[in-house]
Amino acid sequence: MAEFIQHVINGISLGSVYALIAIGYSMVYGILQLINFAHGEVVMLSSVFGFYVAPYFLAHMDPSIGLFLVVLTVAMVGCGIVGFLIERLAYRPLRKAPRINCLITAIGVSLFIQYFTQLDFVFGAIPQSYPELMSREVYFTIAGAEVSNLQVLVLGLSFVLMVALQWIVYRTKLGKAMRAVSENTEVSALLGIPVDRVISFTFILGSVLAAAAGTLVSTMYPKVDALMGTLLGLKAFVAAVLGGIGSIPGAVLGGLVMGMAEEFTVGYLSSSFRDAIAFAILIVVLLVRPSGLLGKSRIEKV
């Protein structure tokens, strides 16, 4: 029993990280129908920011939740700026271009950031260990399964951020504008909604969530590596598709399903199947529900 509960706890904390990243993919897709392949790289940059910034704060503060929040804020601001720049410099000039051009540009941006980060004067190609922001302790035990403060933090922070996001999207004017642009860009523009600004904001929002995910990943798995964004990004993308791309609750559900599926595959089947099972689930779901678990099926006008 303890083993089972431990797997559930591990699965939820891994799934929450996927969910945070998946939301970024889903939001951008919902508005631009663009798969932002550079999103995984924003996650990586968040860890790189943390890696450079943390030592300055560590000189004045002890590892604690406060330090974590400070580094998190810096990473969020940094990644927000990066997200804004990616949209402004790479995607906006292509707003009127065919969708395939944007897709290829997205792959280009992703590779550019990966290899730029690998330059020696930026971060370098050698994986580094992430400074310890919080000392890990066992928080409490449920039926013999140990829950650490980090796992509680991952879950808590993900929950808070998702609620905040839901509030922004459904309760603010900007959120209303985002939903309008996602429904129909041209009509929104006619109605006086500043479409470009709304899209910039969407990228910033997505990147801020990616920053949170990156800082959480590095705190749990203290390794920073210029290529770490690729696999995380891919898994989160699958989670977004699984949940129904374009849908925020879908991204959260997809992330949790992915995390759980991986965890239970390793725990009860074989660790060799880890990624295979996650992708198999994706294929099955897409066969049965092509728009994903919570996705709306759109009728494409031909």
């Binding site: 303890a2 083993e3 591990n10 991986e262 965890e263 595959t265 390793v266 725990g267 660790s271 880890r274």
Partner: peptide, 13 residues
């Protein structure tokens, strides 16, 4: 890989 908790949980059991 960076996450080994699943394997380690199975080992711990």
């Amino acid at each position: 890989d960076i996450d080994f908790k699943a394997q380690l949980t199975a080992i711990k059991a």
